[in-house]
Amino acid sequence: MLHPKKGEDMSVGKGLCCIVGVLLVLVACDDSKQELDVQIINPVNIEENAMINCILEDVVNEVEFNLMAAGEGMNTKGDSVPQVKISRQEAQASPSSIILDYGTGNQKDYLGREKRGKICNEISGRYDTGTCKQEIHFEDFYINDLKINGSIEVQSTGFNDNDQLSFTINYQDIVFESTNGKTYTISGSKTKEWVVGYDTPSNPWDDQFLVSGSGSGIDSEERAYHFELSTPLLISQSCEFILSGEVAFTVENDSCTYNFGDGLCDNKGSYEVNGSRKNFEFGRYTFRYNY
């Protein structure tokens, strides 16, 4: 009977180890792929969508605050970016324009956010009436080094059945780009109701709005997403964050709901997926921050 030599025995053993190792790697890769497929909806996706919604509301609020301030003759230096230059160009005929110029270098606003560049607004009619139309666009505008391009159209639709001034807001090809080169796009439409503060034009800090609507785009992972505001967002002029509201959020074929909390002015929310509820925080102003 022939027996394998010692060297041959070791070669066979090494061969078997290699085969087993390859199989383990293949199994691990397949498991990782399945895990990634299952976790298309994840905390990072939710945080980024919450952040985008919050920034869009903040931009519109910033423009409207300065628009109202210009109309009322108020000094906004202590309330907005201290060095912001508001240039109002108004001829006898509409439209007029207001340019919020934050300069070429970062400047901190009263909430500590750094801004630079310009937000330009073409206006037809008075903001606090039912006939106002605004066309907002950006020129090299950044907030906390997050660049924003695209345009926003705000159209007043008059007073609703509850005697609240209402607006439609259309987001047209908005693109956010963070310092790591990741982008996030959004187009969509929202409706906005002025529910508190209309009767106190000299005190913009008591203004509150309810916002409904939907949007879609491509997220920072290059996945298609869609969101629907299933419960209206509560927006306050005195808070940089969204106070409350619920969002039905879908990325490709995965869905969940998330909310902005219970009315506190903070960056905390929670989401529910597969019957499990978890907490999250948003507001990092960058995409795929943990990658």
Rank of each mutant, 00 (worst) to 15 (best):
P95Y: 03
G105M: 07
G105K: 10
L67F: 04
M51D: 02
P82Q: 03
Q89L: 15
D58G: 11
I86E: 14
A91V: 02
M68D: 12
G103E: 08
A70V: 14
M68R: 12
S96M: 13
I86H: 12
F65Y: 10
K77W: 00
V81W: 14
E72I: 03
K85Y: 05
A91P: 00
A50Q: 01
N49G: 00
D58H: 11
V63N: 00
P95M: 07
P82D: 03
R88Y: 05
I86G: 03
I99L: 11
I55C: 04
E90F: 00
G78R: 10
N106S: 13
S94Y: 03
S96V: 09
S97H: 03
C54P: 00
I99K: 09
D79E: 06
G105W: 01
I86N: 13
V84R: 11
L67D: 10
D79P: 00
K77V: 04
M74T: 08
G71L: 10
M51G: 02
A93V: 14
A93C: 06
I55L: 10
R88G: 01
R88D: 06
C54S: 13
T104E: 14
G103T: 08
G78D: 13
D101Y: 02
K85M: 11
P95C: 06
P95G: 07
E72Y: 10
D58Y: 13
D79R: 04
I98S: 05
L67T: 12
S87W: 04
V81N: 14
G103P: 06
S96R: 15
G71W: 09
D79A: 04
N61Q: 07
I55R: 03
N61C: 04
C54Q: 09
C54G: 02
P82H: 04
S80Q: 12
S87I: 14
T76G: 01
N106Q: 13
G78F: 02
N61T: 10
I99C: 05
T104R: 10
A93W: 09
V59Y: 09
D101M: 01
A50D: 02
V84G: 07
N75E: 06
G103Q: 07
S87T: 15
Y102K: 08
E64M: 12
P95E: 08
V81K: 12
S97K: 11
N106W: 09
M68I: 05
N75W: 00
L67A: 08
K77E: 04
M74K: 11
Q89R: 15
D101L: 02
T104C: 08
Q92G: 08
S96E: 13
V59K: 04
E62P: 00
K77C: 00
V63D: 00
D79G: 04
S96D: 14
V63E: 02
Y102E: 12
L67N: 08
E62L: 07
M68Y: 05
N49W: 00
G73N: 06
G71H: 12
T76P: 05
T76F: 05
Q83S: 15
D58C: 02
M74W: 07
N53A: 05
A69R: 06
Q83D: 14
V63R: 00
N106C: 11
R88V: 15
L67P: 01
A50P: 02
